[in-house]
């Protein structure tokens, strides 16, 4: 096989998600009353970016063959925290942003420590830590409220040079700053190797524990960036249980759509980003076609069901029936 074929095979999931996204976005904008304008793109980008950050966070953990069912709650917690801290003078705001990101890192590190060094199953451990994070969020914001530095918020949700949505620029910068270095570092390789085959990785002397720990920790950071952005969009903090749960659920859907294998070791955060954007656009299609918003949960559920069932097509390629049982 030639080099480009390897590349194509590796990126198939990502390209599929990109394709779905482009098609859906074209349908969306062509049926939108305002059409393809900077405003429509900006609104869509702002909504999509929130899920994209959470999906990136989920990707990092899923790559290690784990799962983080607390990402949505970290997202909520940092949103509530940001509605207290990211206010005041530029100096105070900067410190606030740093504090919020540090809390995200800490949440991720707690998850990582419990799962890796405590040797608990990620599903149960992150459901439990998710309850704790939600509780802290609720403690910070028993009722929706708070405020945020509006200059910063408007800059982050506005447009750069009046064309490109600023949130997309930030997303791109985060990919360059966090995902690209991580996936190319020893730790990132270790996270992939641990997800692919933990035993083999261990035998080859790969630092799997450090790799997995870094993945969980960075996932916390990315969820916190998502939480910050939520604060920038809504100007408030709100500990809504249903919203945190929905983001966890949608992050898994976005990851699956983006071609990241839930068995670990395969996929990229870039795929997950396109998965998130595609998922959001599909959800919003209902609005441009004037459906009753009541149908939206069902519609999203069905999309999710179809998306996860797509993976089943791999069954037709199985030659030995024993491969059914991983």
């Amino acid at each position: 096989m030639k080099d480009w074929r390897y590349w194509l095979a590796e990126q198939r999931g990502m390209l599929l998600a990109l394709g779905i996204f482009i098609v859906m976005f074209i349908i969306y904008t062509s049926n939108h009353p305002a059409g393809f304008t900077a405003n429509v793109v900006q609104t869509a980008a702002n909504k999509g970016v929130l899920l994209a950050f959470v999906a990136m966070a989920q990707t990092l953990v899923v790559i290690t063959a784990g799962i983080d069912l607390s990402v949505g709650m970290i997202f909520l917690l940092t949103n509530c925290l940001a509605s207290w801290l990211v206010v005041g003078t530029p100096m105070q705001t900067t410190l606030g942003v740093i504090a919020v990101l540090a809390v995200g890192l800490l949440c991720g590190a707690i998850n990582g420590a419990i799962v890796i060094y405590g040797r608990l199953q990620p599903i149960v451990a992150t459901i439990a830590t998710g309850a704790v994070f939600y509780g802290i969020g609720l403690l910070l914001r028993p009722f929706p409220g708070g405020s945020v530095n509006e200059d910063l918020a408007d800059a982050m949700t506005g447009r750069v040079f009046d064309v490109v949505p600023a949130s997309l620029v930030v997303l791109f910068a985060i990919v360059l700053l966090i995902w690209v270095p991580f996936s190319r570092s020893v730790l990132g390789r270790a996270a992939y190797a641990a997800g692919s085959s933990e035993t083999a990785a261990y035998m080859s002397g790969v630092p799997i524990r450090r790799g997995k720990f870094a993945a969980y920790t960075l996932a916390g950071l990315l969820a916190a960036i998502g939480g910050l952005f939520l604060t920038f969009f809504t100007y408030t903090g709100d500990a809504a249980y249903a919203s945190g749960n929905a983001y966890t659920l949608f992050s898994i859907a976005a990851v699956v759509l983006g071609g990241v294998s839930l068995f670990g070791g395969k996929g990229s955060a870039i795929g997950a980003i396109f998965g998130a954007l595609a998922f959001r656009t599909i959800g919003d299609l209902l609005f441009v076609f004037d459906f009753d918003p009541l149908w939206q949960p069902l519609f999203q559920g069905v999309i999710l069901l179809i998306a996860v069932s797509l993976g089943a097509f791999a069954l037709f390629r199985v030659r030995n029936r024993l491969e059914w049982f991983l």
């Binding site: 599903i123 839930l262 999203q300 559920g301 996860v308």
Partner: peptide, 19 residues
């Protein structure tokens, strides 16, 4: 269909909620 149980049950949960 050999879909990981965590995923398919989340999805049916979402569909049941929608219904």
């Amino acid at each position: 269909l050999r879909i990981p149980s965590m995923i398919i049950t989340l999805a049916t949960n979402a569909v049941a909620q929608g219904l």
